Amino acid sequence: MVIGVLALQGAFIEHQKSLAACGVESIQVRKPEQLDGIQGLIIPGGESTTMGKLMHRFDLFEPIRELGRRGVPIFGTCAGLIMLAKEIAGSDQPRLSLMDIEVERNAFGRQVESFETDLMVPDLGEEPLRAVFIRAPYIKSTGNNVRVMATFDDKIVLARQDNYLVAAFHPELTDDIRLHRYFLNMIK
């Protein structure tokens, strides 16, 4: 199994380390042809408007959309969540529009208001999941086919729809690889 990690900006190396800890090979994706043959894709955190500009420059929008439409699992964290959303509150920035969610950017405040907390994620067991929020978005609303997996302060921060998984936080910045394992299990 080979997982692609979009490597235009953000914490892509940390995602690769989490995948390696799961015993899985990964490749950095910067061009459409690097999507060929992967079994899953992670879109990491970063700055979503910059990420959108870079995805446009490298002609990645349509190939990633096609990957998702074919049922290949895609995991978006922080900015990756924003990129997968159909709607971004108050913004017309480029996005993949693959997941039936509306998101609010920078919903928990500025960089200096970043924080860590424990989340209860029943799909991952009884042990809380440590979540790192950095200028994080949250999901304002979901379509009927979106399953909410975790909330924080009544805000949706982890959700799944078919082959799409999104987290408002950065699971790659902790040693807990359960969410990456969950994503990998979506492939099998």
Rank of each mutant, 00 (worst) to 15 (best):
Q16C: 08
G52Q: 10
E47Q: 11
I134Q: 01
E113R: 03
I88L: 02
L96Y: 01
I156C: 05
F12G: 10
I101L: 06
Q93E: 15
L179P: 00
E25V: 12
K155E: 05
T151W: 10
Q93S: 10
Y164M: 10
G10A: 01
E102T: 14
D162N: 13
T142D: 09
M149I: 12
K53H: 02
I38A: 11
Q39W: 14
K155N: 10
D36T: 15
A11N: 03
M83R: 03
T174W: 07
H170I: 10
S114P: 05
L158M: 08
L98H: 02
V29P: 03
V5F: 04
G68K: 08
K17A: 15
L96K: 05
R160T: 05
I101W: 08
R69S: 15
L8C: 12
E47M: 02
D100A: 12
G68T: 12
R65S: 09
R147L: 09
T151V: 07
E14H: 03
L129Y: 00
A79P: 06
A7L: 00
A131R: 04
R65D: 13
D100K: 11
M1F: 03
E102G: 08
L35A: 02
L98W: 06
I74L: 09
L60G: 05
M186D: 04
M1H: 07
P128D: 07
P94Q: 11
Q93L: 13
C78D: 10
P44A: 14
V121P: 00
L54I: 11
T50Q: 12
F12I: 13
G68E: 08
R160C: 13
C22M: 08
D123V: 09
P94M: 13
M99E: 03
E113D: 09
Q16W: 10
L81R: 04
G45S: 14
A107S: 10
V72L: 03
S141M: 03
